[in-house]
Design a binder for these strands. Sequence first.
RNA 1: UGACCUAUGGUGUAACUGGCAACACGUCUGAUUUUGGUUCAGAAGAGUCUAGGUUCGAGCCCUAGUAGGUCAACCA
Length: 553
Amino acid sequence: MSDNKGPNFLEEIVANDLKTGKYKSIVTRFPPEPNGYLHIGHAKSICLNFGLSQEFGGYTNLRFDDTNPTTEDTEYVQSIKNDIRWLGFNWQHELYASDYFQQLYDWAVVLIRKGLAYVDDSTSEEIAAQKGTPTRSGTNSPFRDRSVEENLRLFQEMKEGKYRDGEKVLRAKIDMAHQNMHMRDPLMYRIKHAHHHRTGDTWCVYPMYDFAHGQSDAIENVTHSICTLEFIPHRDLYYWFIEQLGIFPSQQYEFARLNLSYTVMSKRKLLQLVNGRYVSGWDDPRMPTISALRRRGYTPESIRDFCERIGVARRENLIDVGLLEFSVRDHLNKVAQRRMVVLDPLKVVLTNYPEGEVEMLPGEDNPEDANSGSRDIPFSRELYIEQEDFMENAPKKFFRLAPGQMVRLKHAYIIKCEEVVKDAQGNITELHCTYVPESRSGSDTSGINVKGTLHWVSAAQALPIEVRLYDRLFMHEDVADAEGDFKEHLNPDSLQVIETAYAEPALKEATLEERYQFLRKGYFTLDPDSTADKLVFNRTVGLRDMWAKESKK
RNA sequence: UGACCUAUGGUGUAACUGGCAACACGUCUGAUUUUGGUUCAGAAGAGUCUAGGUUCGAGCCCUAGUAGGUCAACCA
């Protein structure tokens, strides 16, 4: 998984299990519940599960943990499958916990017969009270000692729909005084007269997570069942059911989930952002979901690289988004087509350049890729440069345009600022410059050396586009740790829309698949909101900006 | 007040299972550069939560603390 880092603890376990002959090949699974979209935290789990089986020879199943019909939907099934494929992984079998409903029911009957499960008429409040507290042991339900026959009959009737939701449950008979709360007669089945996205109305009793997950793993011969830390207390129960049933002994291992700075990672909170319209949807580019990252312009390669860099361990962590940004920049630098776009225009008139003339200047598509081609960029008397690339009273370290100063226009000529034109209010409206005819890129005989190079666009040929810039969704680094409701910490400036930016004409050809680097401005990708009349680009991430750092000093 | 999990530079992970703490990101220098990008060279930054113990030797083992996290949904 990692080259210059030692193996993570799971790789060690798997390697050892293979070495000792405990298994001759391994099976893992990725078990999402189809009740929301996948996020970057799931990506960590996906890379881990699929990565392990790839590394050690084996396979990974995709299994939907769909035991709660009231929250699940096929819309989510589709998006989950789509995201996993996009990330670059292929599952061996597409499975559903609901495929095992009959088997699970039969196993429940087995446990009843063994006297290890009983039907309880207690209300959910009563059951909660019976559980006791972490420091005080629980008490037995008054229905705990029903006969096997009665339990069998009652459970059968539950399944037949004779009872209303919540009227009865099936519980495992373990130990109400157990140190582990999860072992205090946990619920196995509850009644839900609800339509299931796959089994329709054939069932009105549904198994709980604990009575479905381990058995599903066992059915699939999953050797290493990997989950997050909060399932540690479930492990006893996981093994208890497997043992009592005498089925394939899958082993559960836990790792610490991913936490990313300046964002939230729980489906519950993400759902609130979507439903409360704080964002435009699950794929709003500011979201940490896979679909949002994709829309934002992240590549599968960069996400996989990120997951590899962060490692896998058992301690709580909060990873700096900066690391994710490093991974995208690293990949995009190698594949992005370079283009020039002026986001905040300032007009420049080259007073010594012939009026009406347009020359086409070649610009390489990607200096990092020897096989990439080049496109022609129109150059003329009137251009746009970036507002921030000019300063009337520039500090000594400002290597850009200033009165009397010279800069290189990328792929074009060296120009000199001769005059600053202002309106009645004193606002700068345009710059009058002269260009150095012998300084043309590729055939520069001027002998002039300049410190700065600017991007630019020819005014007459400029393509107006919309550009969307994103900042972190939350203002607090550790959102979960911040005071009050998490929504209070939303960053009001997380989205900045530039209705009209000027792009070089080649961008007309942009596609959804292609990644671009707008020179000196960052990496961008076309947004699906684009129409034939108006192209919309999302900024995936900005370039590293040493000047921003320098100018802050 | 119980049980369980965790504790290594700013962040995240390593350390051949007891042999003088490494890698990545970040930070700071400098070089190169027609992107203040990339690339390259280099530097600073922890003595491994604390206190004991075992040992020739401990980040790794033991004990006791401390700190953080998890567990009392008919959610997963």
